[in-house]
Nucleic acid binder design. Structure first.
Lengths: 144, 144
DNA sequence: GTGCATGCAAAAATTTTGCACATCA
DNA sequence: TGATGTGCAAAATTTTTGCATGCAC
């Protein structure tokens, strides 16, 4: 999926809600989608500044929140860090976090997802989203 | 498991590390263990104040961190809230969170845990801890 | 033109840190 | 007694909010 397609979806979301399609919002959205992996709000703001298209922290936060609500971004918190990642064009995945080096690895596991779906059903919860965080020591760190 | 047993373990942890067994630490530890479910640092501080055994915020944070390191407490973050819970005498469990009413339900699912263990193995990570957060609408909220 | 969004700065909320004094072993 | 912990207050973070101005529709 291209940045343009992503932006188009964001525009559509804004339109259907009567919200404005502004430059600041497009910049923040584009910056997020161009970011591989995860970013926090401060880093995103920093990148925008470097690109010569700064956005106020408040705007970054407000836009990221919009993107999450639109289903175009995911938000997750680890170790006091609030991270965002683009949610489209990237398959759903969970995270493996190395507590020694801080590396974050992604993985997808079908049986795990299936079991999660079953848990939802058994408990009578209607699923909206979920997140699995596996903390451990990565091969590199435990091998040395 | 009784509060006293829990405290004894904490004392042992402190002793083996050459740390002091102080009143403030005992109070915070006892308050955490007496708390059903989850508490945040501010709430814990509030309870201590009500009991007439106040502890400074800094002390609450420092002690909770010790308890986590000792394996006597678990820490998890949800929706910008940092929560702590006693980790002993309570079986390991995951969380189901209702995004409508804010209720937090606990569950344990053996097949899910097994699959998680397999994921660790497949990726070569040495497990330390994990957390599964399932967001959704609880039966009460979706039924009405 | 009207209304929503932005940017700024101030505020809020949360957690950490420095340091003098108190406490523990 | 000497090392470690506590409390306080200040600081550092991180995120939110109020409000005047600026854009989008």
């Amino acid at each position: 999926m291209e940045v343009q397609d992503f932006l188009e979806l964001f525009r559509k979301y804004l339109r259907t809600r009567g919200l404005y399609d502004t430059r600041a919002r497009e910049r923040v959205a584009a910056a997020l989608f161009r970011s591989p992996g995860h970013v926090d709000a401060a880093t995103l703001g920093h990148r925008l500044r470097q690109e010569g298209s700064p956005a106020a922290p408040a705007t970054v936060y407000r836009t990221l929140e919009l993107l999450v609500q639109a289903g175009l971004a995911r938000k997750f918190v680890w170790n006091d860090r609030t991270l965002y990642e683009a949610a489209l064009g990237r398959p759903h995945h969970e995270h493996l976090l190395c507590t020694r080096c801080g590396r974050i690895a992604e993985f997808h596991d079908a049986p795990l997802e299936e079991r999660i779906a079953e848990v939802y059903e058994e408990r009578g919860f209607r699923p909206t989203s979920h997140q699995v965080l596996l903390f451990g020591i990565c091969p590199e760190c435990s091998g040395e």
